[in-house]
Amino acid sequence: MIYHIDYVSEGLHVKGYLGLPPQLPRSSAHEMSKAFNAIHGVSIIGTLACSLNKDTIREGFSGSTAPKLPLVLYCRGGIGRIGAVRLKWVEEFAAQGYAVFAPAYRGNEGGEGRDEFGGADTMDVISAIEWLSRISWIDNSRIHLLGFSRGAINAAVAAALSPHVSKMILWSGVSDLAQTYEERIDLRRMMKRVIGGTPTKFPERYLLRSPIHYAARIRCPVLIVHGTRDEQVLVEHSYRMLDKLQEQGHQPEAHLYEGLGHHFPPPQHAAAINRMFDWLKK
């Protein structure tokens, strides 16, 4: 089951999606959903049924009551309708036995405010971590971040600022937004409009949207996933992030997929998810 959530971030009503493992007994999922009523500023505004086939679902939750669930907070890529939350991903991650939350970011899907492409919208992730960490059935020792593409910015900022983050995955992630500006001519007009100008005019605004800037403040283990033929976010972004983390004394892991692009074909995508969750469960 996926719940469509309205929550408050810095006084703004923003949207997100919460997925629960399909292995859960329906009665347990119903009891879990009641916990939202006790959290100020958080409400369920709709539900969506899970559409996964049984082969995708990992076994678990054989008892009558579910244990505390680990959480993956999935930070979407893109901006606006481009790169919107992939509900199939929420389902696939939840099928691994995790609760999954995906912020849509402010200004998207009817949410208030304005998506700043890794600016103030990063607080939508941190705000979500704060209220999710107060839910009784979330395991506070296993709150993980996954940042895809531009979502790597939101994930890295949250990992640097929130004490609740246990592990972080950066999948096909941007590491230096000024580098992205140089590489993606097709995105320059949007970036100048949203950020206010070019990297030359506002270098600090681009720096504050670059995960490599936060490497020294990230305390959790990091996994980097990237296809070597990615044309939307070049794999060099991940190489730079790996180097920066290592300079800071981290021992990041990398799952690099030879010949794959920004989005993986279904068989490789499924295998990458299983491998990624095996890393989370170590």
Rank of each mutant, 00 (worst) to 15 (best):
N154V: 06
I126M: 12
K88I: 08
K88E: 14
V125M: 11
A156K: 02
L145V: 11
R150A: 13
Y98N: 06
M123V: 00
V100A: 00
L161G: 04
F148P: 07
R150C: 05
M123D: 02
R106E: 07
E112M: 08
R114A: 10
A158F: 05
L161R: 13
D139M: 09
I138G: 04
V90A: 04
A94N: 11
W89T: 11
D139G: 12
I153W: 04
A104W: 01
L161H: 06
G110T: 14
V125D: 09
G147F: 12
A104Q: 09
E116A: 07
V125F: 07
G97Y: 04
Q96K: 12
A120E: 11
W131R: 01
I143P: 01
I129P: 00
F101S: 08
G113N: 14
E130C: 00
D115E: 15
A156N: 01
S127W: 05
A99L: 12
N140H: 07
S133C: 06
V90E: 03
V90H: 04
S136Q: 09
R134T: 07
R142L: 08
I135C: 05
K88D: 04
S149E: 07
A152K: 02
I126G: 03
G97D: 14
I143T: 11
G147K: 06
A99K: 03
E130H: 11
I153R: 05
G97N: 09
V157W: 05
R106P: 05
W131C: 02
S136V: 13
A152N: 04
A104F: 03
A102V: 07
S141D: 15
W137K: 10
P103C: 14
A104P: 02
S127P: 00
N108D: 03
I153H: 06
Y105T: 13
A94C: 12
F93E: 15
A99I: 15
A102Q: 04
